[in-house]
Design a protein around this nucleic acid. Structure first.
Lengths: 334, 334
DNA sequence: GTGAAAGCGCTAACAG
DNA sequence: CTGTTAGCGCTTTCAC
């Protein structure tokens, strides 16, 4: 059986209140007693029971994180940043992978509620009214990560998706490409999908390439679907010399497809990705891509959540992080 | 303020014990009352306070998972399996990423102790005596995942590393290769490193290729180091026609290096990886590799931990999972 | 300074 | 079946 505060008190021959004070306000305890208590704690390897503490403070010093796909390295970068921030803030982190399943997400919120997490970072796609309502009913503070809500006033940290996509598409234009296509996110359930398409479209129209705006196919998150989307895109528009992809994994799918068709990248077709995953730099060819500061986004989200939890509000509601175009091997002048 | 059992009791006009019974032994409560209670629970969005429960049961229904590198997709597969098992078992999961840092690992154990996790899955490299001692002092049950301990009697689930490496190396021999090298794990801090080397060596000796046993370079977990190791390996042994890598990420590093040297894979050199990460199938060329059942390993580890936690012991101490050679594009007959 | 005692929200005897 | 009550381990008044 684990030692309790009573065991410590007995060993140090003091009352339990004194032991408690040694832990929470040491200066208010007579030195000799304090030393005796400390020794007893050490000898017994005493650890205060966090259940008892939690009961009193009604705080768990734990944050929850909801992510859609833990096998996506994008979220993995976020986790590292968030975990580091949590350590700094004295919080634990509970990570839950929803696998994009509505039921699962809802039941994780229940679990968070039951475990009394102090706040949640929601990085799981769309903030559907159903989720929002549940979070609000549970009275758990939360911030959005890499997504936002148009309907509700929820703090969030994300990048400027429209501008980032614009930068990527414009880069392709400046390389001299005229026939440019795009692999985007399937429309439903995507919050970053529309602005990234907008950015792409804006760059095309500015360059007088209005015809490209329709050369867009959607894919649902994974390599295989992007491979298939590339097939549709190039079947319909065989003249394309460049493709903008809204995810590095999509870029890999496109490049794989082109490889299977014996089309050279970047020799015949340039491909630009999005995210700058660790693998972007390991792929053959190395991916030109828009880098998102995953680590920093996770870190900031935790800080923001902490701000929200401790002060009840946040300084800035929607926080924008910087993206950056990284030029590697998958793109080339036309 | 969150509703308590008292609020529910009041709204349903019953005593708190009745509410408690509805939650823990519903059949022992009169149906009409039960329905009233259930309605009150629903209306108030009542969630029992897990601190109070924890105080009584002295259980948190939470498992901890210690992993060395969350950006490694290998661990990510494990997480999915473990999380699914935890859901089935009614447990929550607390994932901590040690980044292979001793201090961090130790402080995570403290956090687990304080949060009263019921058990820990340790997937973080070597089980050093220091870690073992700490876990034992905290009296937290634990199982090892994808590693084991020769010194201590600790339950574990892993694959047969020696046999898996043997299979990979033998496959290369059967393809007709005679000049075969290997990229292994750096010796220190690696538990799967030695057996995988043994397996490689056994396959070589059986084939009368004893000379290859020394054609081995070590790398420390990541792509860049494998790239560098490939450089050393091929500088020293330019005649190699095949390389066995103990990780898919290493295989990618090797292939990248060969690409930069204009050496074709699998045209001139065959490369076999290990793990069968999601990316093995996305790489160009797709990787021939030894598949580890990541998901199942995570799942089994959670079940095993549950067995240990609930019964105090495990049926089989060291559980072996099946590996499988998967032939794709990165290997070819000599 | 220090101890006694009242809870935090819940479960589990124990009566009725 | 159902309500009353005694704690689980800790913090925090409140007296002394």
């Amino acid at each position: 059986m684990k030692p309790t505060i009573r065991d410590v008190a007995k060993m140090a021959a003091v009352s339990i209140s004194t032991v408690s004070r040694v832990m929470n306000a040491p200066e208010s305890v007579n030195e000799s007693k304090r030393i005796r208590v400390l020794e007893a704690i050490e000898k017994l390897q005493y650890q205060p029971n966090s259940f008892a503490r939690g009961l009193i403070y009604n705080k768990s010093f734990t944050f929850g994180l909801l992510i859609p796909d833990i096998e996506n390295v994008f979220y993995t970068g976020i986790i590292r940043g968030m975990q580091d921030a949590c350590i700094k803030l004295g919080y634990s982190l509970m990570i839950c992978n929803t696998d994009r399943d509505r039921h699962r997400l809802l039941s994780y919120i229940d679990a968070f509620h039951e475990k009394q997490v102090d706040g949640i970072v929601f990085a799981s796609d769309m903030m559907f009214p159903e989720y929002y309502a549940k979070l609000v009913r549970c009275k758990i503070p939360f911030v959005l990560l890499s997504t936002h809500s148009d309907e509700f006033e929820v703090p969030c940290v994300e990048i400027d998706d429209e501008k980032a996509a614009y930068d990527a598409a414009k880069f392709l234009v400046e390389l001299g490409h005229r026939e440019i296509g795009m692999i985007g996110f399937d429309h439903e359930n995507s919050i970053s999908g529309p602005p990234r398409f907008q950015g792409f479209a804006r760059a095309m129209m500015e360059a007088g390439l209005d015809g490209n705006v329709k050369k867009v196919k959607g894919a649902a998150h994974r390599f295989e679907q992007a491979y298939q989307a590339a097939h549709e895109l190039f079947t319909e528009y065989p003249g394309l010399t460049a493709v903008f992809c809204v995810a590095d994994e999509f870029a890999m799918g496109v490049i794989s497809y082109l490889k299977d068709r014996n089309i050279l990248v970047p020799g015949q077709v340039s491909v630009v990705g999005f995210d700058n995953l660790r693998f972007a730099n390991m792929f053959v060819p190395k991916l030109t891509t828009i880098a998102q500061p995953m680590y920093d986004m996770g870190y900031r989200a935790a800080e923001k959540l902490h701000e929200l939890v401790t002060t009840g509000k946040v300084e800035v509601l929607r926080e924008k992080m910087e993206h950056k175009l990284i030029v590697r091997e998958s793109s080339r002048e036309k």
